[in-house]
């Protein structure tokens, strides 16, 4: 499937509460175009708790259940089992969570659901900090990044959690990384996730213009720089198969180009930029990409 085959039906209503240029708003719009109307969404606390609309309005044309922060994967397990019991096995039950709800407070429930091979799709839109509460650090925040709780930069001794491999170690049906800046790749992965059975996880890199200190018009550009520099690698793993890198730039650009495009890295010294470049290189070597 490519983006030319995608439906022009919209499942996200106009007038949602996403900021201009929000990666998470765009991601939902396009994810639902693939998943379709037989989808029920479980949403823990995140920016999307607001984006989805204030009572009595809703931004979504599919059923949605808001849930407490730590509970998404467990609630979705209950929802899916209930649909199965009712004979509605064909409903996609989707967790739509931010990085805080996935990497941090929701990780235990996520691990439990992945281990039990719950037949759900877990989507994490990762904007690399607690953006809804005003840009506080999470375990998805990259080393060096400014946030309001890391005013001099996220400590370099920290490593951003490797969610892809954490989830992959549960041997799920499907695990992938994606970003809406590469729509073909994004659509293919949601299509694969939709058609697989068992636990499926998609990690989306998702810009936050106010949190990343970027102009909203540069949202797509910055997500592309993340991929072109190797900061974020587009890949997937189907059960029983090796990791498959789904997009390889002809040549990786220096991470400096990605970092300098964002205000949250403005304070970095050259030494720190080099350190980040070294880490990216090590990771790309591990993946056999350089």
């Amino acid at each position: 499937m490519d983006f030319r085959d995608i439906t022009n039906v919209e499942y996200v209503n106009q007038g949602d509460y996403a900021c201009p240029g929000c990666g998470a708003g765009l991601s939902m719009r396009h994810a639902l175009k693939v998943l379709g109307e037989k989808t029920a969404i479980v949403m823990p606390a995140s920016c999307w708790s607001i984006i989805a609309g204030v009572f009595p309005t809703t931004a979504l044309q599919v059923p949605l259940m808001h849930v407490p922060f730590a509970t998404a994967a467990a609630v979705a397990s209950g929802v899916k089992n209930a649909f199965n019991e009712k004979g509605e096995e064909d409903v996609n039950v989707v967790c739509w969570a931010g990085d805080g709800g996935t990497f941090d407070i929701g990780l235990q429930a996520l691990s439990g659901a992945a281990e039990r091979k719950e037949d759900i799709i877990y989507v994490c839109y990762d904007n690399e900090a607690y953006m809804n509460t005003g840009i506080q650090r999470s375990s998805a925040t990259p080393p060096g990044a400014w946030t309001t709780t890391t005013p001099t930069g996220n400590p370099l001794v920290y490593d951003k959690k490797d969610m892809f491999n954490i989830v992959a170690s549960h041997n799920p049906a499907y695990v992938a990384t994606a970003t809406i800046a590469y729509p073909d790749d994004f659509y293919k992965k949601f299509e694969k996730a939709k058609n697989a059975k068992g636990f499926r996880f998609i990690h989306l890199l998702s810009t936050c213009p106010p949190g990343w200190r970027i102009d909203s018009k540069d949202s797509i550009k910055v997500m592309r720089l993340a991929v072109e520099s190797g900061m974020f690698v587009l890949m997937e793993k189907e059960q029983g198969k090796p990791i498959n890198v789904t997009y390889r730039p002809e040549r990786f650009i220096p991470v400096k180009e990605y970092l300098s495009a964002q205000g949250r890295y403005r304070h970095l010294s050259e030494e720190t930029v080099n350190e980040i470049q070294d880490r990216v290189n090590r990771r790309l070597k591990e993946l056999g990409l350089i």
Partner: peptide
């Protein structure tokens, strides 16, 4: 559903009930 904590036990029950 053999969950990994009581927090998930009540969460899964809530999800089923909402479904």
């Amino acid at each position: 559903i053999r969950v990994e904590s009581e927090l998930s036990a009540i969460s899964a029950a809530m999800g089923a009930s909402q479904a």
